[in-house]
Design a protein around this nucleic acid. Structure first.
Length: 210
DNA sequence: CAGCAGATTGACT
DNA sequence: GTCAATCTGCTGC
């Protein structure tokens, strides 16, 4: 609970549902908070991607494949899944579905709302830069997330939490597209499993995206 | 603005 | 040994 804002933590039942794309879409607008290294930071989730352990070759745990890395995705929904990509980027995901069903939602972009100074410092950018938390690797670095934050429980953790979305005067528009960087997945790369807030300047965009 | 190469490490074959 | 759910900076138009 954030008393000053009247916001509550998301409940376990939000994460343990099986509708992966529904969860990914509903996460847009929610508040992601980290409290790492004594530097609290927070942002609004504006972009996500869904990955399913069943019927999705783009997922690390496709076909329910268990490896040391993917083991985290088999946890009950509501845990974090952080892994290293391209040898230098930490990508932050939220595990969904019940234990034994390896689904996850990749958080791709945030709109910063608090702790901008700490985020700017971690990124080496000015506080007003749009690049602070636009893109999955950028957002993790801005919040201070690394592999040590893998497999945390979002419900009980003091370090990383996700809160209900605040009320909006003008409802946000959520649109979907193909996922980014998963061309290797063949026909599964065609899935419209990327969701973002339409028109939000913090949403990442790749020149080659379709 | 499009296109491309480099960075850099751990997971997997 | 190969390649990855990426980002940045440089090139050239």
């Amino acid at each position: 609970m954030i008393p000053s804002l009247g916001l509550s933590l998301l409940k376990p039942e939000f994460f343990t549902r099986s509708e992966i794309t529904k969860i990914a879409a509903e996460l847009i607008g929610k508040i992601l908070i980290s409290n790492i290294g004594g530097e609290p930071t927070a942002g609004i989730i504006v972009e996500t991607e869904a990955y399913s352990g069943t019927d999705d070759r783009a997922c690390h745990a496709h076909n329910k494949k268990r490896t040391p890395r993917t083991e985290t995705m088999f946890l009950e929904g509501g845990h974090t899944y952080v892994y290293l990509c391209y040898g230098m980027h930490h990508l932050f995901n939220v595990v969904t579905n019940v234990e034994g069903e390896p689904d996850a939602v990749l958080i791709r972009a945030l709109q910063p709302i608090d702790g901008m100074e700490a985020m700017a410092q971690r990124r080496g950018l000015p506080e007003n830069s749009l690049k602070i938390s636009r893109g999955p690797a950028c957002l993790s670095q801005a919040l201070g997330i690394n592999k040590s934050h893998n497999a945390l429980n979002l419900i009980t953790s003091e370090v990383i939490q996700i809160y209900e979305a605040p009320k909006r005067i003008a409802p946000i528009k959520i649109v979907s597209s193909k996922r980014i960087g998963v061309d290797f997945a063949g026909k599964d790369s065609e899935k419209l499993w990327r969701f973002y807030e339409n028109g939000n300047p913090w949403v990442s965009s790749r020149p080659t995206q379709k």
